[in-house]
Simulated assay, not measured.
Amino acid sequence: MRRRTLFTGAVAAGAALALPRTAAAAGRESEPYDATPDIERLLFTPPVPQQLPLTALQRSLAAARARFTTAAYHELGTALPDLIAAAEALRGSCTGRERELANAATARGYVLATELAAKTHSDLAWATADRAVQAAQLSGEPAVVGEAVRVLAITMRRAGRPAAAVDLLRRTADDLDTRPGPAARAVAATLWMTAAYTAACNHDASSAHDLMTGAAEAVDRLPTGLPPQQLYTVDATPAQADLYRIGIHTALGHPDLAVRYAARIDPAVLPTAERRARLGTDTARMWHALGDGPRTLAALQFVERVAPEEVRRPALRSMVTALVYAPMPTSGARELARRIGIAC
């Protein structure tokens, strides 16, 4: 059966897709990353800003985005305070269109900071998400506003306000879907996907399925070849829609319905290491909910291969620990636990 070999090929694919890393980066990957100290420095003791022209700031922001998409979270956290300080300084010193672009860069910097905070379960995501939305609104770019709203809604969901998060996502997506240009409509599709997963986490199956159906239809209406830089952390593609379906069915307590979506996603189609790691994470949760330890472990090993810092996140470390201390421990789980710094 296809489901029996789901991650046998995926793990092999991960070896080809993983990007080379420096020795220093590999050393940092051996320790779990906590974003809180870097974000505290960003928020409360920002560095003296380096004076950067807009073009240099945009290049620095592109480099920061690359660190996120390759799951180099230690490096990203270290770089963000200087980057955002420079962006804040520039937007305070320029006018007109340049100021709008500086606000967009500032917003996207805070979007990355919020994504980073969310991955390590830091409460400081509230502050960075709020700053992202404020800067995005000043940018005049609907797509940037949508990106900022998405990370704010994720923060709301994690804080126990999923219904309000769904409402915010739905209203913003409905507005973006009426705007001209494919970028705004693509962000709208990602907001509907996020809303569908948020509704599923709130055990609202009807809303989750309706929103996901709308998201998939929106994705199908988009033109092909949308420039990836316009979609900052999540792409609006059929593969991404299938990835969300895995999480939705698992969150609703029907992981068996998620299996066919996991089986049909080719990891190579997902454009970044961070997204391929999300495939491994959601598939691991699916198999774990189905009580299949070996396949859960295979999915976690895939995450380790394509994005080593991802498998050291708190949620995944907990899953590895559960495999080690299960009544019938999964063979190989203890070795993975040791590699990611879990004493056992």
Rank of each mutant, 00 (worst) to 15 (best):
A56H: 06
E98Y: 04
G293S: 11
A298G: 04
F68W: 15
A208T: 03
T45Q: 14
A24N: 05
A186R: 03
T330S: 07
T250L: 04
C94R: 14
L61A: 14
E100H: 14
A15S: 10
R170F: 02
G9A: 15
L80C: 12
R21M: 10
A127D: 13
P20K: 14
D175G: 13
V306D: 07
V187H: 06
S30Y: 01
G293V: 06
V133T: 04
R150E: 03
A205I: 06
A196S: 15
L222E: 00
P228M: 00
P49H: 11
L231Y: 05
T55E: 11
A218Q: 11
A322Y: 03
A64T: 05
F7G: 10
T250K: 13
V234T: 14
A298E: 12
T78G: 05
A195D: 04
A79S: 08
A263E: 12
P182H: 09
A188R: 04
D175N: 12
L138V: 00
P327A: 03
D123A: 14
A143W: 02
I248K: 03
Q229N: 14
L176A: 08
T70D: 13
V303G: 14
A10G: 12
D292E: 08
A63G: 11
R338K: 11
Y197W: 08
E217V: 05
E309Q: 15
P81R: 10
R4S: 13
Q50N: 11
G253L: 09
T281R: 14
R2I: 09
P47Q: 03
R4P: 00
M156V: 02
Y110L: 04
A18V: 14
G109M: 11
R221M: 07
D175V: 11
P271C: 02
D174A: 13
P81C: 07
A173C: 07
T190M: 03
A71Q: 10
A208M: 01
G291C: 10
A195C: 04
A132C: 10
A16L: 12
A263L: 05
E217C: 04
I246N: 02
A215E: 00
A87P: 09
A13T: 09
D210Q: 11
T330L: 05
R305H: 07
S122F: 00
R185A: 12
T233D: 00
S122M: 01
E304M: 14
F302Q: 12
M1E: 09
V320C: 06
T120P: 08
R21A: 14
A188L: 06
R150A: 07
R99D: 01
A258Q: 01
N103S: 15
F302N: 06
P327V: 03
R65D: 11
D235K: 10
A337E: 03
S30P: 01
V133Y: 02
Q229D: 15
T237H: 05
E310G: 06
T178N: 08
A315F: 09
D235P: 10
I342W: 00
M286V: 02
V320K: 12
I246T: 04
I154G: 11
A199P: 13
R338C: 08
E88G: 10
L116I: 08
G160I: 02
A64L: 00
T283K: 09
G181C: 04
D210Y: 04
N103Q: 14
M319T: 09
T213M: 06
